[in-house]
Structures are given as C-alpha cells and as structure tokens.
C-alpha cells in the first residue's frame, strides 16, 4: 500500500530524517514508535508533503507521491490525522466531518455513501453524535481527538496516518482511543500509527518500527518487539 524508501527530510538546514524505510501492507496496522524528538511526526509530515523531502521515494499503491502537494495526496486516498488534532475550531463537528470528505464531495474522489458514512462515524464515536452542532473549538481534548480521527475516516481512505492519538489525554481517554483503533482494525483498515505509548501501540499493531534520532533502529512484528527490553530502556533510560 504505502512504501517509503530512503527518505530524507528536515526543517531548514537541519536534516532530521536519515534514510527511512517503511512499508505498510494493505489491511495492516503498522506502528512507528520512539521517544520524543526521534522524528516520528517529521516522517508523517514528509509523507503528506507538509514538508518537502530532500531525497527518497514514497509511493502509494505504486504511485509516486514524493513531490505532490498535500491536497493531491489526500485526493489519492491518504488520510492524515495530524499531531495536535488540528480540528477546525470555528466550524461545527458536522462541518469538520464534512470537510474530511471534501474530495468525495467535490468530485476528486468517488462519492460513495456519504450520508451513511457520517452515521457510521457518529456510531463509532458516540461522543460526537451528542455534539454534532457544537463548535469544534469548544470540545475537550479527548473529544477533539475523536473528531480528528472521525474526520480522517470520512475520506474513505486507502490508508490512515494517525499521529499521536494519545497526546495530552487522560489515561481513561487513551484507553477509549485505542479501543476504537482496534475496532477499526477488525474492519480491515490500513494504518500507520505514530505513538509514544509503546505498549499500547504494540498491542494493537501488526508490525512496528522503532525510531531513534531520525533513524529506524529496530523493526519487527509487534509481538516480537513487545518483550524487547531495548524499548523500555529507550524510553525511560532505566536499566
């Protein structure tokens, strides 16, 4: 589905990513974990053209997307729920969901059953149903995260990039978010999940990459990495 080869990118003169190679197969959840500042978010930003990559190839279903602007990548069916949620605060929950389906509603992507999908999304995130006409800016952090995820799903995407869905959330909400991710998984979604909560991410993922200082240092099936002591050390500096 999504293949990243020898990706290099960064901000200004600083090259943050050094030869990143990642593959996300169809119907699988792949997670990218690592401590803060390892370059996880930068990787996602480089994939969707929010920053320009300096070298390397990125393909979606075999189609190169490296130098495309973000909006065209989205039209090809890649949904990116960015770090920090980034909901449209002065629009309602419903409007936000509608914008998630923007390419479908404007003819750049098969329309499908838009109304049905809205209902489905509301079912998946019952909290949003109650707040359908509320402005997104007035939602709590957890609700905004739900909205950001629902908005990404509304694209009817080939693949979802989900960036730190747990950021700044209370543990109970983190739990809820991960429950929803596993429900999405059972419906056969393809996802690249960036998380700093390694254990939670590994529980839900099929395959994992561990980043450190802009490089992939370990990769393997999620089950294998779950018991790898190197991970705990990388996070807590404990021995």
């Amino acid at each position: 589905m999504l293949a990243i080869k020898d990706l290099q990118a960064g901000y200004g003169k600083v090259n943050v990513l050094k030869n990143i190679n990642i593959e996300v197969p169809k119907n699988k959840i792949v997670t990218l974990i690592g401590a803060n500042g390892a370059g996880k978010t930068t990787t996602l930003r480089a994939i969707t053209g929010m920053i320009k990559s300096t070298s390397g190839h990125i393909t979606l279903n075999g189609k190169p997307i490296s130098q495309m602007p973000s909006y065209r990548i989205a039209c090809l069916g890649l949904a990116h729920s960015p770090e920090g949620r980034r909901v449209f605060s002065s629009l309602t929950v419903f409007d936000n969901l509608q914008l998630g389906a923007f390419p479908r509603l404007t003819g750049s992507r098969a329309k499908g059953d838009f109304k049905g999908d809205i209902e489905k999304a509301m079912e998946l995130f019952p909290r949003l149903k109650e707040r359908r006409n509320q402005l997104a800016g007035t939602l709590s952090g957890g609700e905004q995260q739900m909205l950001a995820m629902a908005r990404a799903i509304m694209l009817n995407p080939e693949i979802i990039l989900l960036d730190e869905p747990s950021m700044g959330l209370a543990p109970i909400l983190v739990e809820e978010v991960f429950k929803i991710i596993s429900r999405l998984k059972s419906s056969g979604i393809t996802m690249l999940l960036v998380e700093q909560f390694a254990v939670a991410a590994l529980n839900v993922a099929d395959y994992a990459y561990v980043m450190e200082n802009g490089k992939i240092v370990v990769e393997g099936t999620a089950d294998k990495l779950k018991n790898d002591p190197a991970i705990k050390a990388a996070y807590l500096g404990a021995h």
Binding site: V174, A198, Y235
Partner: peptide, 17 residues
C-alpha cells in the same frame, strides 16, 4: 519517580489498553 507505576504508564501506556 523512575519506579512510580503511574509514570511508567504515562510513558509506555497502561497494560490494559
């Protein structure tokens, strides 16, 4: 702090998730 269960959870995520 290093041994605090809450802290470990905060960083690695709760086992239950």
């Amino acid at each position: 702090v290093q041994a605090n269960k809450k802290v470990i959870e905060a960083y690695l995520g709760a086992e239950t998730a």
